[in-house]
Design a protein around this nucleic acid. Structure first.
Lengths: 158, 158
DNA sequence: AACAATACCGAATTTTATTTTGAGAACTGC
DNA sequence: GCAGTTCTCAAAATAAAATTCGGTATTGTT
């Protein structure tokens, strides 16, 4: 799919203001509402635009603990990897998982109500692949810069 | 602010379907549209609901490199911390930053067009606090579980 | 230049958001 | 216990927005 300047502007606006009305969006990118809607629909069905999320302020909601965990599997077979990844997807508290290259295999972000519950989750992970997981936990003290979208200006320069 | 069962359901729906219409949301949580809208407005102005984001499929948009970097500051003064954090906020490619406890001080997520640009960003970070930053880069091979909201069921159980 | 394909605009229609209103429940203070 | 107050919610009315559609312009191709 080929994106022009207007598409990029649409993405860059929607990325940060997902609930903007189509009219307002159209005005921002200098299009009529109907054309604008066409483009958004096209971007959605092409999968360029994925889900729309509302970011919640977790501290305001409840007490919670966020931990970033580094993981290395001692058995580096691709089967172990798939098993581990599949297990992660079943644990709702594991809210994010990246496979990386280097000394670690995974970075996880885990959100739990408290440390007791966090430990239970970690135990569950160890049980899954016994004696083969190397894990290190890092409690998040402050989210200095929360994710608010990709730097499209820097990425799509042409 | 006190949240009841309905508020929690609203949050849990909005978190994953931010562009749902107010009518549909009202139907989901068994409320009239006006009452539902009142609650959403209240949650927004209380700051419980933050920004609404559209998740973009970056690989479909352009070639890019995502790196998770661990950072330790050799000078652990609070001033160094603030300087470093402030610097990060000025770099658009640093899309996320968490302050953590333990052997590392920060986890960064950095998105760049390619490795050359990534290195330039890292250099910039080193220049800011010369000789005092310990950094380790981990290229993301696959985003196994992208962030899609918090596990409210697990966090808000009562 | 002629053609096909695509994209745009603006008006009409449908759907949705928002405001207003009033009825009922919960809470307060006498 | 019982007015008076406040709060919440639902229903209806109004305002705004989304969506559709026909016609026109634009772009790219031969």
């Amino acid at each position: 799919m080929q994106l022009d300047r207007i598409d990029r502007k649409i993405l860059s606006v929607l990325q940060r203001e997902a609930r903007i009305t189509n009219q307002a969006l159209a005005a921002r990118v200098d299009l009529s509402p109907s054309s604008c809607l066409n483009r958004v629909k096209k971007l959605e069905s092409a999968g360029v635009i994925g889900p729309y999320l509302a970011v919640l302020d977790l501290p305001k909601l409840c007490r919670s603990v966020t931990v970033i965990a580094t993981v290395s599997l001692k058995d580096p077979s691709s089967e172990s990897f798939r098993m581990f990844e599949a297990a992660l997807k079943e644990i709702p508290e594991v809210v994010e998982c990246d496979t990386v290259s280097g000394v670690f295999d995974f970075f996880l972000r885990i959100v739990a109500p408290d440390m007791v519950r966090y430990n239970q989750i970690v135990d569950r992970l160890f049980d899954l692949i016994p004696g083969k997981v190397n894990m290190s936990s890092h409690v998040v003290l402050e989210q200095g810069k929360p994710f608010r979208g990709f730097p499209l200006n820097e990425l799509l320069e042409e």
